[in-house]
Design a protein around this nucleic acid. Structure first.
Lengths: 336, 336
DNA sequence: TTGAAAGCGCTAACAC
DNA sequence: GTGTTAGCGCTTTCAA
């Protein structure tokens, strides 16, 4: 096995305490002699000593590790989020345990439970559905956590989200200003609060512009197999509203899927006024004229971590923080 | 603070040992009375007991946690890899600490060092550059690890990679069979062994087909700012070889960037015979006719974990495993 | 059928 | 300047 503080202490005829202090950098402030400090450090290096952080965690009561629970790490959106969260965490000396809940509430709960057992110092969660068992549990145990991307209206938690309503409003308003009269919206995961907000933003912008809403223009796509479901739904849309002239995609991959559909059906989609919530690579070349509202993903990740760390630091005295970030409006994604 | 085994023992007038055994499910096999077992379990639940896994780790000597070091979690390719690795790890009861090395060898070393200190049971690494300090360190300490995606020819390690040479060969051969004579290849991160292999596969396929290689057809793009660098390099290519009629993209985003360029320059790229190593969303609609060789990412992740766990389990007796997976050849990405 | 006690590696209050 | 010691929460051997 690897060498421990005790081994070093024995070899050098010193006490564990001395070695511990010196190795954790408190040698000088504790007033140890130059000689001893040097002796310990050199010996430690020579025998390849590396601290056992799990012992340290047990002793200190914190692990310098955070937990992240997201629906799907393979989704580029969450992957980016995870990336920036990890980055900010690392900057502050924390590691990140990443878990995918697969959009399953029970799994989410299991993961949270395990993370707690592993004694992470706090967690960041992009919650799934309306399952709140895990969240409630965290609250009961008084463990710091912050919700990202989605949140619950009726619960007091830290959270950082984007202004879904406002961004959608701004986007749809732009489409209207470009002259679109019959703007369809494509929606998926419609049960999510954030999605509802986007759709409300859409409705509000239309209302404000004096355009009457048409239910036939609201297209709901099944998330699970959206790539096939969208064909059917769009066929239906074009049948019912042949003169549709605009599209508001509530999320990036719906835009991509819709364009895939148009190309397949031979529809010249460039004639539509289009806007997408959160863009993705490829869209910019397929439809450079498309407007977009882009997530401040980096900021979102960093904010989440900062709030979490503040919560961890301040403990009981911490007052919950809710942050609503603003998207960036991009008139056309081609010139980003 | 949270309740511990000791608290339960005190409250129930039992010993810590008894409680520990019962709570870890060995109650019946140890032969405790029904009554005691029930009493302990119920009490534990009533006070919301949850085990402290760090204490458990310290005592047992393993953490049931793995470490993953990849260049960039925000890259969709690595994100997917991380996703499948986490999935397989979770299936086996392990958590995953994910870290991005940012393609920086020193950072990679730091991360490995920290992961070791946190006493992960093993690590999976997609190494950067030719920096092997971290790897050497792991070997010296005899800590189980497996390399993915990239590996070092001159070192004895576990690794799982794809057949880069073979896949590239197959792809370029297909382009030749479609009639392409002057096939350019776009390369980035050319110093990487895997990239070299792909380029060699390209060369070999040309050689085999009796096509003379033209250095002007080899386009090297700077990874850091490939989106701007590629314009200049392609301008140069078209100037020097105006009748280029095929493209072999050594990685997905180069294909996307090249198409972005073509669209910008008004080049009808559909006339080219094209092939890409590893595809991405959007390419299928932009160039459905493009051939591709797709990574078995899921298999790669799962294999890596399985090998790592076997190594952890068998320890000294484990014989290192090298696995070369086969890509799937896709004649045209439009019909996947 | 249950308990006592040592130990995992590290920290920190308190001594000398 | 340096050492003693108790303790973090859990496992496990040995005893009773």
């Amino acid at each position: 096995m690897s060498v421990s503080i005790k081994d070093i202490a024995n070899a050098l005829n010193l006490s564990k305490a001395t070695v511990s202090w010196i190795l954790s950098g408190q040698g000088e402030s504790k007033g140890f002699s130059e000689k001893t400090i040097k002796r310990v450090k050199e010996y430690a290096k020579s025998v390849n000593y590396r601290p056992n952080l799990v012992a340290r965690s047990l002793s200190l009561g914190f692990s310098k590790t955070l937990g992240l629970v997201i629906p799907f790490l393979r989704d580029s959106y969450y992957a980016q989020m995870a990336y920036y969260i990890e980055k900010e965490a690392a900057k502050n000396g924390y590691s990140l345990i990443v878990c995918s809940s697969e959009g399953d509430g029970n799994k989410e709960y299991e993961l949270i439970y395990t993370l707690i057992a592993k004694r992470v110092d706090g967690l960041i969660i992009a919650p799934t559905k309306t399952e709140v068992k895990g969240i409630k549990y965290l609250q009961k145990l008084d463990i710091p956590f912050v919700l990202v991307d989605r949140y619950y209206q009726n619960m007091e938690t830290n959270y950082v989200i984007v202004d879904n309503f406002g961004s959608a409003y701004e986007l749809v308003e732009a489409l209207v200003n470009k002259g679109a009269k019959k703007i369809a919206t494509l929606v998926t995961d419609a049960h999510l609060f954030v999605m509802k907000q986007r759709v409300e933003g859409y409705s509000a912008a239309l209302r404000e512009a004096g355009v009457k809403e048409d239910f036939a223009l609201k297209v709901f796509v099944d998330r699970q197999n959206y790539r096939v479901d969208i064909d059917e739904k769009l066929d239906c849309l074009f049948r019912e509203v042949p003169d549709v002239d605009g599209f508001f995609f509530t999320t990036h991959y719906l835009a991509m899927a819709a364009i895939r559909y148009m190309v397949k059906r031979g529809v010249d989609y460039h004639r539509f006024k289009m806007g997408v919530f959160h863009t993705m690579a490829g869209l910019d070349v397929l439809a450079p004229e498309m407007a977009a509202t882009v997530f401040p993903i980096e900021e979102l990740g960093a904010e989440a971590v900062d709030i979490l760390l503040a919560n961890i630091r301040e403990g009981k005295d911490f007052v919950l923080q809710a942050k609503v970030l603003q998207n960036t409006f991009l008139p056309s994604i081609g010139d980003e």
